[in-house]
Write a protein that binds this DNA or RNA. Structure first.
Lengths: 244, 244
DNA sequence: ACCTGAACACCGTTCAAGT
DNA sequence: ACCTGAACACCGTTCAAGT
């Protein structure tokens, strides 16, 4: 952005020589997201981040304590994108499904971020918003108190685990991933029939399962479990009502 | 093992000078498991493995293509320990529960192994045995064909994701882990009441949830989903039987 | 107040040289 | 046939020096 020298806020010392070299935390986070979006093509390193910013790599340490703190801040921005993609006005089931779909999309877009924060708590604002969203869905489903707290952790941790696992898979070397991918139609198809009768019997079905189907079934299992517990609690409350 | 020079298999050139310095793949795997069992206290590096073996670190490359291949072999040994801890004679539910408990224990014992293979396929014998075990349980539950194949992946991948997530958590620096751990009784307790009413309402319940309870509830959700699908299939088969 | 760049203490892996 | 050790191409991070 070039502007005429005297048209800026009064008394602000303008040093055009430095324009573009002054870093802000936002610039660092945005450069991080750009690198992260390159996936396995580009390793996420402090040196690469320096390149991306056109500055010395160690300048980043003037704005973030270490790489871990940077990554948690980057993760919070990713969580913001996730929330932007969850529409309003859905019932609790579709709200959780939309959240799961958005989290999955974000993990595919920024695999290094999803992978390296899957076991962590960011304790930042968008994580609070996601917790609140899940707790709201669980309340609507009919869970409260310790049930709601436990199932928040079940849903939240599972979403992190599933997306983190897939993100890490997207980051393994293409050659290695290809041979992992081929195992169901390769090694497993050649399994000894006598020793592994079930594997043999499902030789056609196992290679046909897609990641999308697995992710959906895993998440639907959580929804079924929530419905199951809510029904149990309703039944218990109904009995109590009848008994009193 | 020292022995008198001439008492060994005939014509085998015995070089006592080299005893203890000749590496075998098994020795390398066992040294790897010892290092892995030290958890976050000791980083799992090729150099440390060399120390543990009393040899030059690069000698390992005479027996394993790279660190990845070594880690997959080590993971297979871990899977063997998991299987050793699954008793015979259980029904499908308790067999899956025992597998989940054994996998969890192994992840706690060897966190770096569970963490670094959570997105991978070892394609080795003990993985085959675990797949066979899960498929057997699903068959007993009443799932077959594409259902069994899908739910194998749901159960297997989920077990890897859950144990890998927790293992990675055990490996984060103790100071960082402590502050993550304290978040529910710290930052989350201070959340703005107006903006985060659900979080505020569950301020007492959220910090009380234990990792064990979460792991159990996640796994029970899978069992419920299996029962649910099996019941659906039985109902459909019953209807078809009635209709024909 | 912020950026730079040399430097430190690490990594996994390769390769020529030993035995 | 296997092991050694120097070396390469990396890491995250610190710190004295610049502006």
């Amino acid at each position: 952005m070039s502007s005429s020298p005297a048209s800026n806020p009064p008394a602000a010392p303008v040093r055009t020589k430095r324009v573009g070299r002054q870093l802000t935390p936002d610039q660092i986070v945005e450069a991080s997201l750009r690198i992260a979006a390159r996936g396995s093509a580009d390793a996420f390193t402090i040196r690469r981040l320096g390149d991306e910013l056109g500055s010395d790599p160690t300048a980043i340490y003037r704005h973030f304590r270490d790489k871990d703190e940077l990554m948690l801040t980057v993760a919070d921005r990713m969580h913001g994108e996730v929330l932007d993609n969850v529409p309003d006005g859905l019932d609790w089931r579709d709200r959780l499904r939309a959240l799961a779909a958005a989290a999955h999309a974000a993990a595919v877009k920024y695999p290094i971020v999803a992978s390296s924060t899957a076991s962590r708590t960011t304790r930042r604002v968008n994580e609070f918003r996601i917790v609140e969203l899940i707790l709201g869905a669980l309340a609507e489903a009919g869970l409260d108190g310790a049930d709601a707290a436990l199932y928040y952790r079940v849903v939240g941790d599972s979403m992190l685990a599933y997306t983190g696992q897939y993100a890490a898979y997207l980051l393994v070397e293409p050659g290695v991933r290809a041979s992992d991918e081929a195992s169901w139609s390769g090694e497993y198809r050649l399994a000894d029939t006598a020793r592994f009768p079930h594997i043999t019997r499902l030789g056609d079905e196992l290679p046909a399962i897609t990641h999308e189907a697995i992710y959906e079934a895993r998440f639907e299992a959580l929804i079924i479990a929530i419905e199951h517990l809510a029904a149990e609690r309703r039944a218990a409350a109904g009995d109590a009502g009848t008994a009193s």
